[in-house]
């Protein structure tokens, strides 16, 4: 790892000021589960690290009726073990329990994952399917407008993800088809059903990161059953292809994993 300097703000304002002061060479450090390995490989070399783990405003889970708000600094383990989230939106809690391994879940945060937007990250699929909102220290952004492309979000320089929020749907589930070695999603699908329709968020498969599968949404909105997507095809052109699976393989996975997710949602 190249040299760096560590800073520990205790408020959002202090964190943002540090980022302004340090400029381009600074990076926010949340759980560090992506950033630190990346720095160790010398693929990233920020001159300054601004640790967000001691910023109180980023903590806490609030559930009001069916409205859920999760602070950016909340860890995956806290989401997975939250009785409040489990009681209104069990699909979201179980997604958090499938990220990494227990030690990674103790450190990694919702805000860090959302801001990084790894093409195989799990939360983006859920936030897209749930019509979620990403809150920052400057504004609120709908998930549909937030996730732009590979590792690319609507976040501006120095902007901090302070929370994510969404309304729990009537039924939902997340199904993850993991690479057997890395355990990352080769394809992960979150389905959310409400009175006004179904939304389907897909991660791990798309060549531009997580996306909504609109053909699948249409079919499932008229018939919320696994068979509803049988006749559909997913375009290979939009899929990732690598040594772990071709784009044709991933295109097929989108259908298969969606069917499994629907089956799971129906069984809840």
């Amino acid at each position: 790892m190249y040299e760096t300097s560590y800073h520990r703000p205790t408020s959002l304002e202090e964190a943002a000021n540090l980022a302004t002061e340090k400029g381009d060479e600074a990076k926010y450090l949340s759980g560090g589960m992506t950033l630190i390995p990346t720095m160790k490989q010398r693929l990233a070399a920020p001159e300054a690290l601004i640790d967000l783990r001691h910023v109180g405003e980023l903590k806490g889970i609030t559930v009001n009726g069916r409205s859920i708000r999760i602070g950016g600094g909340v860890t995956h383990a806290e989401v997975a073990m939250s009785d409040e989230i489990k009681s209104v939106c069990p699909g979201f809690a179980s997604l958090a329990g499938l990220i990494g391994d227990p030690a990674v879940r103790h450190m990694g945060t919702v805000g860090g994952s959302v801001a990084n937007f790894d093409p195989a990250a799990d939360y983006p699929a859920a936030l897209l399917a749930l019509g979620g909102t990403i809150h920052t220290n400057k504004r609120e952004i709908a998930a549909d407008d937030f996730f732009l492309g590979l590792f690319e979000t609507a976040l501006e320089e120095g902007e901090i993800v302070t929370a994510v929020s969404f309304e729990a749907p009537d039924q939902c589930a997340y199904e993850k088809f993991r690479n057997p070695a890395s355990r990352y999603a080769m394809c992960g699908v979150f389905v959310a059903r409400r009175a006004d329709g179904v939304k389907v968020g897909v991660t791990g498969a798309g060549s531009s990161g997580a996306f909504r599968w609109s053909d699948g949404e249409q079919a499932l909105s008229s018939d919320f059953a696994p068979e509803a997507v049988d006749g559909l095809t997913v375009s290979e052109a939009d899929m990732m292809g690598d040594i772990h699976g071709s784009s044709a393989y991933r295109a097929n996975l989108v259908k298969v994993v969606t069917k499994r997710a629907v089956k799971k949602a129906l069984s809840h």
């Binding site: 560090g32 630190i36 690290l49 640790d51 103790h106 450190m107």
Partner: peptide
């Protein structure tokens, strides 16, 4: 492994298991 995969470096920080190869001492 030194890449947060293998868990040989797991310690408890404030009572929770974490991978000490993926955390800075200053943190």
């Amino acid at each position: 492994c030194d890449t947060s995969q293998c868990g040989a470096c797991v310690v408890h920080v404030d009572g929770k298991a974490v991978k000490s190869c993926t955390m800075l001492a200053v943190q």
